[in-house]
Design a protein around this nucleic acid. Sequence first.
DNA 1: AGCACGCCGACT
DNA 2: GTCGGCGTGCTC
Length: 798
Amino acid sequence: MIAQVSVDVAAKQTDRVFEYHIPQELTDVAVGSRVVVPFGRRKVQGFVVGISKTTSYTGKLKDLLVVVDELPPLTPELITLSKTLADKIFAYRITILQSMLPRVMRANYRKILVPITEEAKKLKIFKGEPLDLNEVSNLNTIIEIKKLIKNNQAKIEYLVENKAKKKQIAIYLLTKTKAEYQQILKGLRKTAKKQQVLLDNIVKNYHEYPKLGSKIVSELDVSSSVLRAAVKKGWLVKKEQEMYRDPLKDFEPRKKKIQIKLNSEQTHALNSIGKSIQKREAKTFLLEGITGSGKTEVYLHAISIALEQKRNALMLVPEISLTPQMVKQVKERFGDNVAVLHSGLSEGEKYDEWRRIRRGEAQVVVGARSAIFAPLKNIGLIVIDEEHESSYKQNDTPRYHARDVALLRSKFHKCPVVLGSATPSLASRARAQKGRYELLLLTKRANQKALPKVDLIDLKTVEFAGAQFDLSIPLVDAIKEKIAKKEQVILLLNRRGFASFMLCRNCGFVLKCPNCDISLTLHKDTQQMQCHYCGHKEPIPRRCPNCQSEKIRFLGTGTQKVQEELENLLPEAKILRMDVDTTRRKGSYKKILDSFGDHQADILLGTQMIAKGLDFPNVTLVGVINADTALSLPDFNSSEKTFDLLTQVSGRAGRAEKTGRVMIQTYNPDNYAIKLAQSQDYESFYQKEMRVRFQGNYPPFFYTTLITITSKNEQSAAKEAFVIKRKLMRHLHAPTIILGPTPSSVAKIKNQYYYQILVKYKHEPKLHDLLHQIQDDAQLAQKRGLNIYIDNEPERIM
DNA sequence: AGCACGCCGACT
DNA sequence: GTCGGCGTGCTC
């Protein structure tokens, strides 16, 4: 038998199958197996994407070397999906196969030098072990190695290693009868106090064994050496048992059957989805419901229906660690049947959760973007919550959109997809309008609460509190009032750091990152100027680096500065700041939210990570410090992003009995995105924005593809971009629009210059092949230091 | 992507 | 005559 293998070499020339003979002893290999194969002189990991009896290859086939896992990690469905998706998004198939699995399953490659002769084994460089060639840099050693190889005294070996470690726990089993242990206890030396404790416990609690090693150690206060001694003497037997790391052990699943009654709208939505599950339809629903209308409750009921049908359910949420509350709800409803996958877990935890899914031990999977590849079988329902979120699109290769993958999987499993949002993406909403998706509306707030009152504060005319121009008097007064009433406040500012740039008032110099075309941000906590693109850091200047003048100012505002201002203006208030800088450590996110939930602070000040999904009943005021930051971006969807963000963050106010209030500070109070966010009028926004998109020839009226060309040399990037543009122009015709090439809005990042071309088209059958050609050429261009990226339906085109 | 092969100039 | 620089081509 012959295996078709996709090898772990991400390059255009190797982006195809290589065939291998399956040796007799590896008959357990199947489509989806992870294997190690000889590839040229090396060994590489690969995935079996097909098995056949014959081959058209005329050369001699090599044998598969190893089948890595007992159970093939990928299902045939996912293998097929990898091919479809690779073609669609211009990625290598192997890149997609790799991203379907937890990172720890990626191979580790090593090259070692193994001594052959006895004489060589004694050499200093080996120290009794093979030499790791990746760690050799010394010139003399390299010369010595070459000599050894030439004289046949040593050889190079290629290793493929598995990084994944299964967590093992030790269990201790008894070997004797109770009476025998009593005998041993009697004969024990008087000084062996701890052994006595252990034996005592065995005799008294005989039935409690076998027992966890860690439990024995903690309960009896003995050290592990006592256990080791006991094993040595034959009293106990140690057994290693594989254990799953449980990321949710902190949650106590109540598993109470809290059947929340659905209102008529919810019931109608649920019935439609339920019918579709039962009829096994690959149908897409757009569940559009205002904040607080109980979308989650509909999801959970729908998942129950899928489970009743003995089918499984997949639910995506935007970067799950952001919504621990959501995970908790699902976990409470479905208990141990739930597996979670998101970036907040350690690599090991992710691997364990993934294995539970693969083995069929979880019926419900909740996760962020990459969870769309969960190896779940027999899917009866896919839910994508907050479907408009841009985080569902991966920003680097493979540039897939989880929504597109969901639609592919739904076709395979013949199950419905539910896209839920208060502010659907224009693309999805337009499809619903056309009838390609079924629109389900939830217009009533489930708790019958009125929507919060939203005020716009015009920063052009308002007076500011304090010396800085960040916090207006009305906003500060409102905060004071809420704090006096022991209520809580959430403040949103979409910029971290203290001041976003340094300006010299003498010569106009702005301090920029040496590697990127962006100004450096002042960070007060670390006392450094930082680049938010590449992480470059340098000391805060005292004089202008250009003209040595001392008249330098730090302008623009960030979360750190606003925190300082708040501390000055409201010395009695306790403030928690939440941004990338304060949440870098694992678990710090949850810690901040928990302490805010316990009312250990009055104000939660943060970047957009606080806008989503948080549910704090005591929050009655939400303040947006500057609504214009996103609007000023030169992107076709910046209005949509602004509207979404403002609507989302407004929804954080007044979640329980207390009525909420929202205050939005802006320099553009007449902008339609901001005005319509104030009235929380999605429908009008949709109509208005569709007209804008129509006039600008933007999605959803046009499809878009973005080609980005980068190089360390600005001229060669620009030149290559023009070559590509000419190529496109030769083959594509109106109404297709080719924009650019233009330098990106941040023209240089990490010393790479960025040029881009945007193709907008309605129907362009040649484009797909043309882009694949461009991708082929990119392989050659790479040798000249050029990188070319193709992004199908980009989320950002700056 | 690696790795080898092969061609060419530079050095023992 | 041998070493090592880089361009070219292949990997079942």
